[in-house]
């Protein structure tokens, strides 16, 4: 008969557990990218065929034109990009129903368009900030969600993308 040897109790060595865990931790630390999506949000107008044309008074539209050379025209007058913020702000204060319509040439640089859009957003942000300081006595970012929605409703962002001349 075979002699049965008494075996020692089997045990998983756990001393290196921490090291293994550390290694995994480092891998995930390195692999993690907190890739937040940031950008300028906008809502496009619905397709031209599906909706009826709504007539808007000429005085309620601010036409912003960016030409191929990157020059910006506001209602036919040449304006520099950093001026847009203040000018649009004053215009909206005078006429809260103002719609800003942006039109670009096909050859316009995309980054120039983003710059212009950015200035517009900044103008609206300033107005919202002023509004929230006036009504709540607090900065817009310190308001709670409902209040922020209220302010957003009071000063809606009305940026419209003008219909391009020809659709390819």
């Amino acid at each position: 008969m075979l002699k049965r040897r008494k075996r020692a109790e089997a045990e998983i060595p756990s001393a290196s557990m921490a090291d293994i865990a550390f290694e995994l931790l480092i891998f995930f630390l390195v692999a993690t990218t907190f890739d937040v999506d940031t950008g300028i949000g906008l809502v496009l107008p619905p397709a031209a065929e599906t909706t009826e044309q709504v007539k808007i008074k000429q005085s309620d539209i601010a036409k912003l034109l960016v030409n191929a050379a990157g020059e910006v025209l506001l209602d036919g007058e040449l304006i520099t990009v950093p001026q847009i913020r203040e000018t649009i702000k004053n215009k909206i204060k005078q006429n809260p129903k103002l719609i800003v319509s942006i039109k670009t040439d096909r050859e316009t640089n995309y980054s120039r368009y983003i710059e212009v859009l950015d200035e517009l957003k900044l103008a609206y942000n300033d107005l919202r900030e002023e509004h929230s300081l006036k009504t709540y006595g607090k900065s817009f970012k310190d308001l709670n969600r409902d209040q922020q929605e209220e302010v957003k409703k009071a000063i809606p962002i009305r940026i419209s993308i003008a219909e391009p001349e020809e659709v390819k």
């Binding site: 999506d37 940031t38 950008g39 300028i40 949000g41 906008l42 809502v43 496009l44 107008p45 619905p46 397709a47 031209a48 960016v66 670009t104 040439d105 096909r106 050859e107 316009t108 640089n109 995309y110 368009y113 983003i114 859009l117 950015d118 993308i161 391009p164 659709v167 390819k168």
Partner: peptide, 24 residues
């Protein structure tokens, strides 16, 4: 160039995907 951006936007409008975000 804005040409391609306009083209894409026109197609998005046709597809009724109107909420956009210019990633910056």
């Amino acid at each position: 160039k804005m040409g391609i951006v306009i083209d894409i936007q026109q197609r998005l409008r046709k597809a009724d995907a109107l909420r956009i975000n210019y990633s910056t």
